[in-house]
Design a protein around this nucleic acid. Sequence first.
DNA 1: ATAAATCTGTTGCATTTGCAACAAGGAGAG
DNA 2: CTCTCCTTGTTGCAAATGCAACAGATTTAT
Lengths: 225, 225
Amino acid sequence: MEKYYPLLQNTPLFKGILPENFESMFKCLSAKTKSYEKGEPIMLAGEDVKNVGIVLEGKIQIQKDDINGERIILDELGAGGIFGEVFACAGIEKSPVTVYSIFPSEILFVDYRKIITLCPSNCSFHSMLIRNMLMLIAQKNIMLNSKLDIISKKTTREKLFAYFKAQAKKTGTKMFELPFSRDELADYLCVNRSAMSRELCKLRDENFIEFEKRTIKILKWPFRS
Amino acid sequence: MEKYYPLLQNTPLFKGILPENFESMFKCLSAKTKSYEKGEPIMLAGEDVKNVGIVLEGKIQIQKDDINGERIILDELGAGGIFGEVFACAGIEKSPVTVYSIFPSEILFVDYRKIITLCPSNCSFHSMLIRNMLMLIAQKNIMLNSKLDIISKKTTREKLFAYFKAQAKKTGTKMFELPFSRDELADYLCVNRSAMSRELCKLRDENFIEFEKRTIKILKWPFRS
DNA sequence: ATAAATCTGTTGCATTTGCAACAAGGAGAG
DNA sequence: CTCTCCTTGTTGCAAATGCAACAGATTTAT
């Protein structure tokens, strides 16, 4: 467990809390760790969520299963990522999402009631935890808004550019790696894969972009900036 | 100001705080009120956001202005509604959204730094305020997810049904009033208005729904539940 | 009361998209 | 190496959609 302390120290949730307090804190929070294999579900939609999860190792994917059986990728988290905290704070008991381990992963679970409730012993880290949680959720909120920005576009072309623009802004360059396969990207943008593929090639033919595998290079923007 | 105390008492942000503490609390929080006419902007995109706003009277609309000049309605708030709190908690200085008063409105502004920072005098309401804020933002988060659910649908028909389903669940009946004009609804669903109008009529002709003006009545569901 | 503005439905048309099926290339397993 | 699976691009076609323009109805302003 101690080997993850440097990681946890830089985690948004535990930022500002001294590592020497971790052991007593985890005890107070009833923290537990669990291992998952690649492809194994960590949390299923409809299950009770009593814990906040923190990825110590590996990679997970948060998905939403549609009525029609379609899969929507909401997020992908590596080491340091946190999930389940929104339902915790919103008072939602049943998970509306499914979380899968897409690499062999090690997850730290924390009882969320113990995070938001000040303990009798009045531990010093509690107000910091809550403050951190606030920022965490607010920023996730911003991310959701960004995704809405992209999905709100009417055409596939506009969605692609909106997504590319966000990625370019994130990485600071006009050439970047997609974190998705084509299939997953289409899911993310909520469009048909083959239609998206077609549009990508059109954009290439019109000299807007170049791409090879997951590498995208922006040559020019269609609208202003 | 005192006339709004009953309203504020039932506001998510101030819930659990006794009205007799309101005056001293507002003083501590540097709270101010301001009036707006119908159509007047309350907060423009790009402006500094230093305050959290609470609607005391009237109605406001939160919009996002697209690069292409398209308008996306993110939310509509009546008395008791709160806005700007997400940017506050996420540490974002410049507002990415525009807020308009769509009725003559009275807005209460609170310096958000004073909400999340425990004051020297250690007021009793501060930890409650932060806890309330946490739930507020987490629930807004959930709402964004719900909207994503709707927008993520590929066809206009699916979007309409996803939206209707959410409204039906909200009101608990199969007949409800739309909070939008057709134009606004199309904006909300991110589809072309005339195409949506066409689809609505198709649904009527296929006996899925009945509608008159803003009243929608669901006759049957296309898929399960 | 009259005029102007807004809301809603309608229609034709070009374009986009979803869908399904197939093919080429590459990665990984045995 | 060979076989299988996965990823990606390709294509034809029917259906959906965006767009623009128009008309009737309703609301609002003067």
